[in-house]
Write a protein that binds this DNA or RNA. Structure first.
Lengths: 202, 202
DNA sequence: TCAAGATTTAAACCCGTATTCAAAAACAAG
DNA sequence: CTTGTTTTTGAATACGGGTTTAAATCTTGA
């Protein structure tokens, strides 16, 4: 073992790749971009990774995992399903047009239609987010906090869909729809779907 | 003037570019791809267009215009706002994972975060679609067909957002969510938002 | 300190890119 | 058919891509 373990070095490269992808796009990013971001040469990158595309897949995979885990952590200590729901909606949206995590996810939207690996990653993430919302909705329904107008699966799918779409609008710098406006829009749906006023905490 | 006018030849190239973009992605498409799709050489393409990126922008622009105009045409002869709404929801979704028009739109999702031109095109299309929905909702409200639970702008924005998101899921080949399922999901929201049963016509 | 191993670099390689340009081909009009 | 113009080709240019490899550097353990 040297100063940094083999896996640690790969983690660094994954992070460099993540930044490079955001800067140049999944299909526009090059080995030199990643190397520059990592403070190395392209050869050194390829010493740790067999080829570029594998590194890019790992970078996307890691980015998704981080995004999802962060969302779970945000609501880990909460009891009230209504509060959980509001916080979860917020955590699914980018903080601004340059939010790195969402930027990374949005890069895959087009590529997923051509690349089975990326398609699988994206649909898996979607389904996990749906399950996350569904769990909140179900417990809220059981506790009487929510009165669901539809099957929880339907509402959950629509909530994640709304997040995704407004994420795209925000990263595309829509002049009117920012993070706050997107939250309001999604909450408008969540309120009618749950029958809960869902007050935002500030 | 020769057999084909200058603008006609450009239209052919735009269509070739559209197909090439779908095959290789906005950032992965090359001059040779477009030329091959048009049955020409790269030099001939550049004889009609000053450079590749300008052609790509035109191709995206034309694709959006076609997509939007087609949606308007679908509901042009209809009276009943409920019927209009259902048809419009359908026309906003891809027919399947390989639907060319939606594939083209999805290509821009990631690029819009890096390219101001693409961002403008996408947000403009979004706003126009919102206006289209809003018009349907407003007339339905005026006629008493709809009883809107929210401002028509809010509902319209959410409807377009849902279309966009499910378009991505469908083109990414989600194993469960296809065009029919997506329609049902969006209709679930539309029903609660309009207070109308919104029967699908078959 | 020294030797062995791991890591990084720099250069070479080959392939593909956008773009330019002179020559060839296709075409329209006289 | 011939002339003049438009269009297309194919080659040349110059650059950048990913990947490989030998040499140089750095790190660790003895």
């Amino acid at each position: 073992m040297t100063r940094k373990s083999r896996t640690d070095r790969r983690v660094d490269l994954i992070d460099a790749a993540r930044r490079a992808i955001i800067r140049h796009g999944t299909e526009g990013v090059g080995l030199n971009h990643v190397a520059e971001e990592a403070g190395l040469t392209s050869g050194a990158v390829l010493y740790h990774y067999p080829n570029l595309s594998e590194l890019l897949v790992d970078a996307h995979h890691a980015g998704m995992e981080r995004f999802y885990e962060l969302r779970l952590k945000r609501i880990s200590g909460m009891r009230d399903p209504a509060e959980k729901l509001v916080v979860t909606i917020r955590s699914g949206l980018p903080h601004g047009p340059d939010d790195p995590d969402v930027r990374l996810l949005n890069e895959l939207g087009g590529a997923a239609a051509r690349n089975r690996m990326y398609a699988l990653l994206l649909t898996t993430l979607y389904d996990r987010q749906v399950a996350m919302y569904q769990s909140i909705l179900e417990t809220g329904g059981a506790l009487g906090t929510f009165t669901l107008t539809d099957d929880s699966l339907v509402i959950a799918r629509n909530l994640v869909a709304l997040e995704d779409a407004y994420g795209y609008r925000i990263t595309a710098r829509h002049p009117v729809i920012g993070p706050d406006e997107a939250v309001d829009l999604i909450l408008a749906y969540a309120r009618t779907a749950t029958g809960n006023p869902l007050k935002t905490s500030h």
